[in-house]
Design a protein around this nucleic acid. Structure first.
Lengths: 409, 409
DNA sequence: CCGTACCGATCACTCGCACAACAATTCTCG
DNA sequence: CGAGAATTGTTGTGCGAGTGATCGGTACGG
């Protein structure tokens, strides 16, 4: 479900055109609306070349002309005609699979959420049950999509380890899933056969924050997601760090306190036993059945408890290992850390400074997600959109038109 | 001293030619000797195109025709004329700066070591003293280079943290250097002005093992270097993982045992206090003044001592964190681990299996360096050669001809 | 011994981008 | 208020890079 990696191939002219068209669309996707003049300077190509590429995108129905937008005019000269994302252009379906709920959205280019729906899913539900719930949500978000708009694919964020080669969910501890082909289940429930991409939620959070959130323009960032488990998504050099099989970023099981609590992985004192949802809940004496609503509970606090302060210190100290090892420019704190961090910022920063080496410490910043709780959902949209940026013509050629009819038939 | 990162630029025809010429040379560098037919299928380009590129490389003096090499003929047909690296072609100078000695080599394309020299350097020597020793070694390895052979640049492997933006050595604990511009020092001692690239030794070990050692064809590997400190070099997706400023891979300070020995970084129980050279020396009761010769001492053992077994277990358990976080396909054990690992293989494997998550564990392999103790030296050569693969014409255009005269004048 | 297979060399062809000239539009300065 | 400067879109031309077909050369195999 993911394209194989490129080898040391040569480049021919066809590839040049594909690459340039895809890069132009990537820029448009990033900015949403821009002038041809901006594109010219960004891509370093000739004006005429940009004009040709823009014309091709328009004929593909991806972009449309816009009036010379009345933004700040910085100088003399003929105003540059705008290029903007077409209203009925290509879109994807993004699925954010959580432990207790699923969020589904129809997302267009530019990361615009066009429709959204969500529903609770049972914690220990069978995969096929969850799959049919998700399929129902997908049907609802595409209920009033215009027939001319092409569906490029589906992206799914999973709270677990996803094998890159085929998108198989190897292990989702909190869903109690082992080796589930969730992409196939959803497609079967829909009766469709379109591209489906799956990836780990933290990886997708990192991707979305890099493209549209707190990490725009930052090529080396880490998104640390605090939920029941703790995971990290890594962006390096502007690319996703996936590892050999797609499992990279399992920072939750870093050795933190060999005398600590037992972890479900079989060891003791893994970092996530000190800063995961259960540890946070314990620090604020939150009853076990309210751990799923930990966000709301945490928001009730104006001052941290001593237990929370300790959790904050542990969070900072664990982040120190991550910063030492990855040397990121920004660390984005997602999941429950998003509400925890503002409460115990001082302790986190102190724990980080205490254990990080001077050189990597001086260039790192801690940040909250710029996309709030939508990071993973928008990350799922990004991986589904990706084929458009590699080869727009091919991706649109294989996209699905008139989804409502296809779903009805 | 390192080229800036590429942004989302477009591709023009000039870039295509550069890229194809560089890619062809990269293949030739990897295989040393190949037929045009192989190049055709590897790069996916037309025969005529390959012929044109090969002709250009020949006119640049980089490659030369070889007789249809008498290797295994797999089928009928006219034998494909060979392409091989030119005898008097471009070369680089590689420097492996160790704690107690420096190795300098003249290295040609294909990673061939053409000349080599080494000398002891004082542990706490001033940087300029070490620089002039290295300069003398460089003079000796280029003493009988033919005048027509161009010198592309110098690559230096450093046992410390190197800032990527300018090659500044931020910290080399065992040399007791802070913020040393060693590249500039060496150039000044030589009286030359040519490109110098510096990088961390573990990073370069990883690069060399990926290109020419135990990791050929492996796109996700980690080279863990055990010396006085412990560091890691990471290759992901076939690229170096450097982090925002170049400091990525500092695994030696991963938290291992919070009640453990104090580390020079100010914390307690960092992993390198358990598996670094001093810990190994302690495990075998090696006197402190022989730590520099730990390799030879270790080679004297046929059976591991109980202390070494414990070190092996700690090594495996620490590697587990690395495997969980990076999900590599291969972990190469360099430095002192190269002699330690065969002694305590069982303990390392057991420690790794005990603490690694099942999914990343199933795809990882432990390996010894395919290049022996030359990994870092050849990695230094690789970064110096890199400009040739990005743009052969430009790199050769700015290369230095007739080095002997330039050094004399 | 001859047919087949494979490779190198050559040349016309296609395609994509760069360049130059011109038109359109706005700003600025006198 | 008007002319020139500045910037951008448009169009046609040219260059360069890779493609594809053809021919000739060399080896293998029956």
């Amino acid at each position: 479900m993911t394209s194989p990696r490129r080898s040391g191939l040569g480049t021919n002219q066809e590839a040049v055109r594909r690459h340039n068209l895809g890069t132009l669309l990537r820029h448009l996707h990033g900015a949403g609306h821009m002038s041809r003049a901006e594109l010219t300077s960004l891509m370093g190509l000739n004006r005429s070349t940009i004009a040709g590429l823009v014309a091709e995108l328009e004929s593909l129905g991806v972009s449309e002309r816009a009036v010379p937008v009345g933004n700040v005019r910085q100088g003399a000269g003929r105003p540059s005609a705008g290029v903007r994302i077409a209203a009925d252009g290509p879109y994807v379906v993004a699925v954010d699979l959580g432990v207790d709920r699923a969020v589904v959205a129809r997302v267009g280019l530019g990361g615009r959420v066009l429709q959204r729906a969500q529903a609770p899913v049972h914690g220990e539900g069978e995969a096929w049950q969850v799959g049919s719930s998700v399929a129902a949500l997908i049907r609802s978000v595409v209920a009033d999509v215009p027939p001319v708009a092409p569906l490029v694919g589906i992206g799914i964020s999973v709270p677990g380890m996803v094998r890159r080669s085929d998108g198989l969910i190897r292990l989702a501890p909190n869903l109690e899933w082992h080796d589930v082909s969730f992409g196939g289940i959803v497609l079967a429930a829909l009766g469709l056969d379109i591209p489906v991409s799956l990836a780990n939620d933290a990886d997708l959070g990192a991707l979305a924050e890099h493209r549209r959130g707190a990490g725009v323009g930052i090529d080396d960032l880490i998104y640390v997601s605090g939920n029941v488990g703790v995971g990290a998504g890594i962006i390096t050099g502007g690319r996703r760090f996936e590892g050999a099989a797609g499992y990279a970023g399992e920072v939750g099981h870093l050795r933190f306190n060999p005398q600590g609590r037992p972890c479900h992985c079989g060891n003791r004192g893994c970092w996530e036993t000190e800063v995961g949802a259960h540890a946070i809940a314990e620090a604020i004496s939150c009853p076990a059945d309210k751990v799923a609503q930990l966000d709301e509970v945490l928001e009730g606090f104006r001052e941290p408890t001593p237990g929370l302060r300790d959790t904050g210190t542990a969070l900072g100290q664990g982040l120190a290992s991550i910063v030492n090892v990855f040397n990121p420019q920004v660390v984005v704190l997602g999941g429950y850390f998003r509400t925890l961090f503002p409460l115990v910022r001082a302790e986190v920063v102190a724990g980080l400074a205490e254990r990080t080496l001077p050189a990597p410490l001086e260039s790192v910043t801690l940040a909250l997600p710029g996309l709030g709780s939508d990071s993973t959902l928008l990350g799922a949209a990004e991986i589904a959109l990706e084929p458009l940026f590699v080869d727009p013509v091919a991706a649109l050629g294989s996209a699905l038109l008139d989804v409502r009819t296809a779903l009805a038939g």
